[in-house]
Design a protein around this nucleic acid. Sequence first.
DNA 1: CCTACCGTTGACGTTAACGTAAGACTTGGA
DNA 2: TCCAAGTCTTACGTTAACGTCAACGGTAGG
Lengths: 161, 161
Amino acid sequence: MGTEQSSDVVAADRPLRIGEVARQTGVTPRTLRYWEEIGLLEPAAYRESGERLYSPAERDRVLHIRELQDLLGLTLAEIQDVLASEDTVERARRAARADAPTLKRLQLLSDAIEANRRLVERINDRLQRVIEFRDECIERGNRMAARRAELESQLSRAGKG
Amino acid sequence: MGTEQSSDVVAADRPLRIGEVARQTGVTPRTLRYWEEIGLLEPAAYRESGERLYSPAERDRVLHIRELQDLLGLTLAEIQDVLASEDTVERARRAARADAPTLKRLQLLSDAIEANRRLVERINDRLQRVIEFRDECIERGNRMAARRAELESQLSRAGKG
DNA sequence: CCTACCGTTGACGTTAACGTAAGACTTGGA
DNA sequence: TCCAAGTCTTACGTTAACGTCAACGGTAGG
């Protein structure tokens, strides 16, 4: 019943330097510093020298941010909102570990659920519109294909006759 | 059996001035001029004075461009590609009206179909990833909801006992 | 024909989201 | 201890996609 400590293998949650996070996520150190500058992503800690130290949680957050950016096309400002909502989840989690009263925990959890619901709704709206757009494209494709078939049969009749 | 001409009602395809197109589509005149500058959208004609004249076709194209921008988050450069593909469709249509040989028309049509297919594929890729992302969000929501239910039942038992 | 818009062409300004470069300091391994 | 590689801050540069302003000319309705 040892703890999860094992110092001879690379600790799974050893602090990451900025370059490591960058390599693991595909963003540049500059981007991480910029995100910090605008209050989007804080390092887990700093060394006395000023060097930034990240934990795997932050690395995951980087990936999350990139998805919100690339997939949903949100601006960093919008992403801040979304993350602020999601942080409610984190607060709820912390409250769970601490000795927070059940009622308080319920409240936080409900907030988090609500924030999540709004995000899903937002995504669904977007999905709906993209699907409609795609279907229009498919429709056009079908009409063109039909027209092509028509032309082809014309051509074959001409070849026969 | 008159033609579709009727000059006493507002002609459906009367040339539109830049401000009209702007109002009808929600973009600014500046944006239309910019799109023209980068070769994204040409007016149907110019007056001698230099004033731009658009037809309903261009107005529709504006809406189309905005959808590609907002919904799919494409850059104007990417949109140029997409539109170039779609213009193949237009060329095929023109060839159909003209006395182009059936074989030529078939070729153009096939190109258009292929371009459309690639666009649909692209959209589907995006859709797939967005759906996965949404489902992850929903999953998280479900876990939180379950946790909340747990807390609630805890609370009610405490209230009873 | 007059007037109130509408439009034109420059040309410079703006915002988001970083890139890049300089100069100094840290860190980690041989 | 030493050196290469990494990191720090500061600050200016860049790109896309327009916004804004000035100075000027065209358009349309009464």
